[in-house]
Design a protein around this nucleic acid. Structure first.
Lengths: 123, 123
DNA sequence: TTCATATTTCCATAAACATGGAAATGTTTT
DNA sequence: AAAACATTTCCATGTTTATGGAAATATGAA
């Protein structure tokens, strides 16, 4: 991942409203949320919300698909994980004696494809 | 960690020069680097560098200690880890069936305390 | 104390960003 | 086709941020 893209992603998240939006989408998972719900949830006027969602999308942190008149927004987990990797890369010059790497969790939602397929089968 | 602090940390990193500085410090580990070396390494004029280092410190991502006339800068790993935790928190509403959490590495350098103590003993 | 080195503060300038009303654009329902 | 809904584009406004020269401050060395 290029530095330019990381800066863009960080800049996108470095703002009250957008950070709140992003976290809502992380919580929502691959299913995502329609823009309108986000706006209601956080009390953001439509034009302002639209501006922020565009920023998040341009930064690659959010993807969108249309469902009727709604535009469903979803967090792009891969991109977030790449940003985190970039930030912690080469820690302590890779010297394992100076730097303990401990196991932790990285959010990796199961692709929505399977969930969708399950829903379709249920109809 | 409060949203305000996360925004501050992300804003601090959302800039070419500062991201480069921060990564240099991650690589350097707890030993850190004097401001001057950073400036030379990245070709940043002193006043500009001073401005950026102040931003990083205010955001809590960098700590400083004086060594003679030099000011040694070091990455604040705890803070970075807290920011990452905030960003991935509550993924998929915590629904483990939708969200696979996979083991990865989190940079946790051994405290410099022990290294310092060892050096002192060697004198 | 005088000199050299390291870093900061001061400041002016230029550029980028956030906000939300009004009007425009798609999309579904009647 | 008209009405209703969801979202975007346009735009004027105010705010924040980055940059680096010149001068100030702090620390150590001669």
């Amino acid at each position: 991942m290029k530095s330019k893209n990381v800066v863009a992603a960080l800049a996108a998240l470095a703002q009250d409203a957008r950070l709140a939006i992003y976290r809502l989408l992380v919580e929502a998972g691959p299913a995502g949320l329609p823009a309108g719900e986000i706006g209601k949830s956080l009390s953001i006027p439509a034009p302002t919300l639209s501006f922020h969602l565009a920023q998040l999308q341009q930064a690659g942190l959010v993807t969108r698909r249309r469902n009727g008149r709604q535009l469903i927004q979803a967090a792009a987990f891969d991109r977030m994980n790449a940003v985190i990797a970039y930030l912690t890369e080469n820690c302590c010059g890779g010297d394992m004696s100076a730097c303990a790497t401990v196991g932790t969790v990285k959010c990796t939602p199961k692709s929505i494809t399977r969930a969708k397929a399950r829903k379709k089968r249920m109809r």
